[in-house]
């Protein structure tokens, strides 16, 4: 896998997450917004080999942790907590790795489906971790509400992944991933 390609792609998708996801793509004031970082993690999990999906999910999850302030009811107001998103991304991408064997990876809808299911599981894990943390941290969260928002965001992520797949699939070789494009006169379908 090409580390330079992955770093560049991460930089672009992080910018999309920070600059477009919430400001432009959020559904009203509901908080439901897609996650570009998870779409990239899902793509690498779908196409990557070896340990690449694991380390990519870990790195992208850590970036998501760094960019996501968690509200506190204490005077501090907010905090950056390392770990919840990273673990959530890891679990979500493990599901994708388990499912990819029965999917047609060339199809853009596949990335949409995998991103949606992976993100849904990821959000469940994330909310569960934050719910456990409420035992010893003064977190300003509502687990039920946040779970519903997260599941809505997972669906949104899946929908957004379909058009992004049209860009990512041809760019797989740039990331050092096996090409997902059909080859002429290929022995295998």
């Amino acid at each position: 896998m090409s580390r330079l390609g992955l770093v560049l792609a991460t930089w672009v998708f992080l910018g999309l997450d920070l600059g477009l996801s919430k400001p432009l793509l959020e559904l009203g004031a509901s908080g439901v917004a897609p996650s570009f970082l998870f779409i990239l993690a899902a793509f690498v999990a779908m196409c990557g080999t070896g340990r690449a999906p694991f380390w990519t999910a870990l790195a992208l999850g850590l970036l998501a942790d760094l960019m996501a302030d968690v509200g506190l009811t204490s005077p501090d107001g907010r905090a950056v907590i390392i770990g919840p998103h990273a673990l959530a991304f890891l679990v979500g991408t493990q599901l994708i790795i388990a499912l990819r064997g029965v999917m047609i990876r060339r199809n853009p809808l596949t990335l949409g489906f995998l991103a949606c299911t992976g993100a849904a599981v990821s959000q469940i894990v994330l909310v569960a971790i934050l719910w456990v943390r409420m035992i010893f941290d003064p977190l300003a969260i509502s687990p039920t509400h946040d779970l519903l928002v997260g599941l809505g965001g997972a669906l949104y992520t899946g929908v957004l992944a379909v058009p992004l797949a049209l860009v990512l699939l041809p760019a797989a070789t740039f990331l050092g991933l096996p090409s997902q494009q059909p080859r002429r006169f290929s022995r295998h379908a």
């Binding site: 996650s35 960019m67 968690v70």
Partner: peptide
């Protein structure tokens, strides 16, 4: 402003 908190539970501006 160059970024926003990515969590609906804690919106912040960077």
């Amino acid at each position: 402003v160059f970024g926003y908190g990515t969590e609906a539970r804690s919106p912040v501006l960077r």
